[in-house]
Design a binder for these strands. Structure first.
Lengths: 140, 140
DNA sequence: CTAGATCCTCTAGTCACTGGAGGATCAAGC
DNA sequence: GCTTGATCCTCCAGTGACTAGAGGATCTAG
């Protein structure tokens, strides 16, 4: 089976047409044969691969990580530890992000907790931002 | 006082030199007078403004939001509700991000919870990514 | 045939920076 | 005064993952 247009593939996977083209450009998806009129012709393996990519993207894996995961998935005898390590690294990154966001949340919640105060001249939001002593250590 | 070089301002605020130039380019920082040799000359008000910007960036506010906050801070009689609304919107955005990341975290933790399984052929990480039925609804 | 949908390539924009090239100026030390 | 290293300047392009739109071609249903 090699008869899916890019639009059909897009509908089947939920990945947008320009994004599929982008993925081909960056080598994440292989180039596929074209019709006589130059249209891409996708098959079952492409459908499967794009589904994998989309799933991984949805889970927040970066393109480069996905590239590696795909490479690994093509080597059934390879130790699983490699894929596992990628996932664990990703998990740690997400944990880091969550904890940074949670700290930020705390500060901003404090800033707005008493609601608007009337005029800007006595506005806590502006006040806090203007007072660098209240600035937590840079998170980035 | 108008005698800070861009490097000095950078050291005083923790904002990198290229970033300060960038902020000037996008209008977040006003252009400042130059020395005869073309170097920027910053004063106390610039120092204060950049501090405000940095603080807001550290709290995750977007450039455009900061632009608005700065505009508001220049109008002491303006109702605080505007600044408050910006901060609340930002708070809601952070909440959203946290909850999305937390959901992601759950899925990936499940994926890796039993540790590596040996070979790729039976690797849970690859397995899950290849099975689109296991894919949660797209979060983005 | 027509019109709308879909496809193509190409270019540039998004957001907030960041990196580096190529060159000029400054300042300290000799 | 000269040298050297630091700092400054503008300009251009890259980062990551798309996204938007221009200009044109092909397909398909009515």
């Amino acid at each position: 089976m090699r008869d899916l247009t890019i639009g059909a593939l897009s509908k089947r996977t939920g990945v947008k047409v320009p994004t599929i083209r982008y993925y081909e450009q960056i080598g994440l998806m292989p180039p596929v044969p074209r019709t006589d009129s130059g249209r891409r012709s996708y098959g079952a393996a492409d459908l499967k691969r794009l589904g994998f990519i989309r799933h991984a993207r949805n889970l927040g894996f970066e393109i480069e990580e996905i590239r590696q995961l795909i490479a690994l998935s093509g080597e059934p005898d390879r130790p699983c530890a490699d894929a596992d390590a990628i996932a664990r690294r990703h998990l740690a990154e997400i944990d880091d992000r969550i904890s940074r966001l949670t700290a930020l949340r705390g500060e901003i919640a404090r800033m707005v907790e008493l609601g608007p105060h009337g005029a800007i001249g006595e506005c806590r939001v502006i006040e806090v931002l203007a007072d660098h002593g209240l600035c937590a250590e840079p998170a980035h």
